Amino acid sequence: MSTVTAEQYDGWTEEQCADVEIVGGVVVARPSRSARHNRIARLVANALDDAGGADWNADCGFDLRLRDVPLDNRCPDVVVYRADTVEEMPARPEHVLLVVEVVSPGSETTDRLVKPDQYAKAGIPFYWRVEQAAGRVAVVHTCLLDEASRVYRAGEVFTGLVKAAVPFPVEVDLTDLP
């Protein structure tokens, strides 16, 4: 199995990069996302973008370069990053404050175990995981990085209505999703 380098990936077209992530230099297909998944990600991103003020941007689904060798290139559902780095893509962990993953069928293990471990080792201060199941209210698990161990510690858990104080005050209403 051949691996992809950062230089090779950076030369790919937008279409080639769509719906893939690179883990340890290996191309991994991202599971397809439902309309509900995409709506949750957009609602969370919009709320975080508004709450972040002039210093922080929040966007959905773009490349986050965790490591160049071997290449680890993830595409979180939502990324909160320093506004003054908007032109620096792919985003780098040192510019990122928070990543959010919306768990879907097919992404459970990756979003609950693999990605948080990678994000923590990269030094990203906050991680949120949104658990969503058809017919149920979304549950948001917030995690904070323990700098010494580079492991996330459980923070607050919100069901439906998120009223988080960190990384900055933000409110997201996920109670009335279809």
Rank of each mutant, 00 (worst) to 15 (best):
G25C: 08
V114M: 06
P31K: 00
G123M: 11
L98G: 03
Q132I: 11
P31D: 02
A18Q: 14
A154T: 11
S104M: 07
A91S: 13
A83E: 05
T109V: 12
E171C: 10
P90C: 10
Q8L: 07
L113Q: 14
A45K: 01
P90T: 06
C17H: 12
L64R: 04
V26N: 07
P93Q: 13
V78I: 00
A122H: 09
A165T: 14
P178M: 09
W56E: 04
Q132L: 09
A133D: 13
E94W: 06
V162I: 11
A133G: 10
A138P: 05
G135L: 02
A134P: 13
C17V: 04
C75D: 08
V99S: 10
G24I: 00
V78D: 00
K121W: 06
W128E: 09
V172T: 08
A122I: 08
V151H: 09
D49P: 02
L71T: 02
Q8I: 03
P125H: 12
T110I: 08
L144N: 05
R150P: 02
D117V: 07
P76N: 00
R42A: 08
S107M: 07
D19C: 06
N38Y: 01
R129Y: 06
D19R: 15
T142C: 14
E171F: 03
V4N: 05
V162M: 08
A54I: 05
R65S: 06
D176A: 15
E14T: 13
F158T: 05
F62R: 13
A165I: 05
A154V: 09
D49E: 12
I22M: 10
K115V: 04
R112M: 07
A164P: 01
R42Q: 06
A29S: 12
R129S: 09
V4E: 11
L144C: 07
T3L: 15
D146N: 15
T110H: 12
S149G: 04
R92P: 04
E87V: 11
R65A: 09
V130I: 14
E7D: 15
V79M: 02
E7Q: 14
W128D: 09
A58V: 04
V166S: 11
D77Q: 01
D55W: 08
G160Y: 01
R112Y: 12
T85N: 07
V69F: 06
R136E: 15
L177N: 09
T159I: 12
K121R: 15
G160F: 00
